[in-house]
């Protein structure tokens, strides 16, 4: 990571990504980079294609065209397992938790710890999960309840813990604070900054302008499946972004704002 060339290479480079559903063009030739230790906001209307683009990166959806490079190497992300193999972890807006399983079972779902004989090592999964969850929320206690019985905040904590426990290099956060109260939202913001400082690259999908301006280094706005603008956060203000989201274009009199927020 200290290598100069490595620092210059993007962690993720998505190049000319297309996604068609029959006649509907959900993503049209979108390219985006993500560097280590930066937060890139992915913005747009519902249906603008941002979730689609992120699902392609997380291996949950196959692109119709385009290439993805991770650390400069072309990556073939056919399944969520493939993406996880590249260190790409996702916190889904739906959280993607199995309601009947408990916190530890969800955290290790698909990547269960096993004993020497190949049996599930539930004791170790419980203690590891407890550790991971307590780091995010010291009050987390209902470890053995099915997650259906937990609050929205607790469920969110499990989804986040699952993403970071496995040493993510790239983190996709889809509306991570949509279901949260103010203190939990602050916790997620703190966590985002901490992970960023550890050199993790983060894609943040959010509708919350506060979050975007507080956390993001760069933003990329999508409109009708196209990338209509990618800027350093200093160069745009809220109105510019809203204009991009709604009209798909900047205000007519726009010049780079250069740090004036």
């Amino acid at each position: 990571m200290l290598d100069v060339t490595a620092q210059n290479a993007p962690l993720v480079h998505m190049s000319e990504i297309y996604k068609h559903f029959g006649g509907i063009h959900a993503v049209e030739g979108v390219s985006v980079d993500l560097y280590p230790g930066e937060v890139v906001g992915v913005l747009g209307h519902n249906g603008a294609g941002k979730s689609c683009l992120m699902r392609i990166l997380s291996g949950a959806m196959l692109p119709s065209g385009g290439k993805i490079f991770v650390n400069g190497e072309q990556a073939d992300l056919k399944s969520p397992q493939d993406a996880k193999g590249y260190g790409i972890e996702t916190i889904y807006q739906t959280l993607a938790l199995a309601n009947h399983l408990d916190a530890a079972q969800n955290l290790f779902l698909g990547r269960e710890l096993k004993t020497r004989f190949g049996n599930l090592d539930d004791a170790r999964m419980q203690s590891e999960a407890q550790e991971a969850l307590r780091q995010l929320n010291p009050n987390f206690r209902n470890l053995k309840d099915p997650v259906a019985k937990l609050s929205g905040g607790q469920r969110q904590v499990i989804a986040i813990a699952r993403a970071i426990y496995f040493q993510a290099k790239v983190l996709i956060m889809d509306e991570p604070t949509a279901a949260l109260g103010p203190s939990e939202t602050a916790m997620v913001a703190d966590l985002t900054m901490r992970l960023k400082n550890e050199g993790i690259g983060i894609f943040l999908i959010s509708h919350d302008m506060h979050d975007v301006f507080d956390l993001c280094d760069r933003v990329m706005v999508m409109n009708k499946g196209r990338n209509v603008g990618a800027f350093r956060i200093e160069d745009v203000n809220k109105d510019d972004i809203l204009s991009l989201i709604v009209k798909g274009a900047l205000p007519d009199d726009w010049t780079p704002r250069g740090g004036s927020k």
């Binding site: 969520p80 996702t90 199995a98 309601n99 079972q105 698909g110 990547r111 599930l120």
Partner: peptide
């Protein structure tokens, strides 16, 4: 593991898929 996966698939198939 197969048992855990059987429960997860029945509980939330999409979540199970996204979890790998």
């Amino acid at each position: 593991q197969i048992g855990r996966h059987i429960f997860s698939v029945g509980s939330n198939e999409e979540a199970a898929r996204l979890s790998g």
